[in-house]
Design a protein around this nucleic acid. Structure first.
Lengths: 267, 267
DNA sequence: GGGGCGGCTTGATGTGCATCAAGAGCCGCC
DNA sequence: GGCGGCTCTTGATGCACATCAAGCCGCCCC
């Protein structure tokens, strides 16, 4: 394509390592939004019981993925949105020179593929960070249903809008913050997202390798490693491989500069 | 609010300087989407003549703003979207510590306020960079119309999705690129956006000061200034204050690393 | 005209994080 | 068990860009 030119700068490829285990086969088990543990965070939020029933009729199946498996790749035709049911994903984009950028880490209840609507083609990659399961949402049908169910349309706008808001915060982080602040902010972010999902806010396992964290934060893996060690030395966290325990939530949130939006962190 | 803590890092306030001229008064002149020069880029894209008529009934009025005037501020209740008719804007978010980040520069045909839908409140600021005019779109009515007009709903999704896609590219830029690459990419980006709007791709006036460019790119004004000087020395551009002329589009696009997506730049 | 101010440029110095390099822990596999 | 390949850590060095500090230019206003 003649696109081999300029200077990447920093970094180290982070492309789908293409796992050797066979992909899990698609299961056709029916989706059950009404009982789903993340329904408050997902499409069904704000829908009546009857509306959720209609939604379930559309979201025909689930798909299981193994760690490292790609949910979609840039260039794939866009037909489905995916709602994460369990596990976690990273989204990445790739520059013309082959350089990769991790743009999100996605957790259960979040939707993947929204950026593919315009152009009818995925422009980013989504890859499972651990064995995961997603609900498959054929967008054409979803769109049709939203036309009839205002609450659903409402929720779709909500999710788009939330997504934009989150990206603004990421820009703030990347644009002007020190490595230390970025790292602290990521830990706080993951903590609060796990917490919303009913997991511990202070003890969790990072599902992604250091290289992905570094890439996401615009740093290097070495710097991430040093920062985690430093935080540990300062008794803010305890780290063992990918296991993290937050020992001093207040200190960490102050470092992150987000304590005001993290409810009652200061109380 | 007890939010006076941590380390800002770098930078220099960029908040609404609050112009001394009185704000322009709102004019009630009817909007005419059908004739608007940016309708291809705006909400009417893909709508039939009759549908555009219905859209016009909703978009009741225009609003004129002077350079430096705020269109909305974080915390304002969300009732309207705004479509830029002429001029340009910057969007910014503000961190808990008061630090500001410019997240976008917006040009005619683009929508402002999309990130405020969820939560019914603006979470960012939009400020006119020059005397500008916008169409006011009461979102409740727009939402109602979209419920009846699939093509409009479609276009709203399109715009949301485009917005997400653009943010991904910005993340790529901020996450891993050198100052030089960022600056070149911004110039190319502005160039192509002006070009889509029927203006020259190679000669334009930057409507924003160096500090805003620097802030947007995660750099300092000094670095921006040095880079522009350097590009000029290397005969890629000519700069005089805010006037920019691109002398070597190819070289600049190669520096930016985006030449593959810039149609026919290599032809 | 001249003084003040904000935006811009240019230079000198400093530093935060990348880069390079080596080694340690962990795991799957032969 | 032990080898090869990961991810992760830790240390030494260097550089890109921030920071600090003048000075310039255009513009408004007295």
């Amino acid at each position: 394509m003649g696109c081999d030119s300029p200077a990447p700068r920093r970094y180290n490829g982070v492309l789908p390592p293409s796992v050797d285990r066979p992909p899990m086969k698609d299961t056709l088990s029916a989706v059950n939004c009404g009982n789903c543990s993340v329904r408050r965070l997902c499409l069904p939020a704000g829908l009546s019981g009857e509306e959720i029933d209609r939604l379930e009729k559309i979201t025909g199946k689930r798909r299981m993925l193994r760690a490292g498996e790609a949910l979609y790749r840039a260039g794939d035709p866009f037909t489905n949105l995916f709602a994460i049911r369990s596990g976690s994903f990273k989204s990445t984009v790739i520059a013309a020179d082959g350089d990769t950028q991790v743009t999100h880490f996605a957790l259960p209840g979040e939707l993947l593929g929204l950026d593919a609507y315009s152009g009818r083609m995925h422009s980013s990659f989504a890859e499972a960070l651990e064995d995961s399961s997603v609900c498959v949402l054929p967008f054409a049908q979803l769109e049709g249903l939203a036309q009839e169910v205002p609450a659903l349309q409402h929720q779709i706008y909500n999710i788009f809008s939330e997504e934009l808001k989150k990206e603004n915060e990421t820009l703030l982080l990347l644009g002007k913050r020190s490595a230390e602040t970025r790292m602290a902010a990521l830990l706080m972010n993951i903590s609060s997202r796990y917490s919303r999902r009913g997991y511990s806010a202070t003890a969790f396992v990072l599902s992604m390798p250091r290289t992905d964290i570094a890439n996401y934060l615009g740093l290097t893996a070495e710097t991430v490693s040093r920062l985690l060690t430093k935080f540990q030395r300062e008794k803010m966290i305890a780290v063992r491989g990918r296991e993290v325990e937050i020992l001093d939530l207040i200190a960490l949130s102050e470092l992150a500069g987000t304590h005001c939006s993290y409810e009652d962190a200061g109380a």
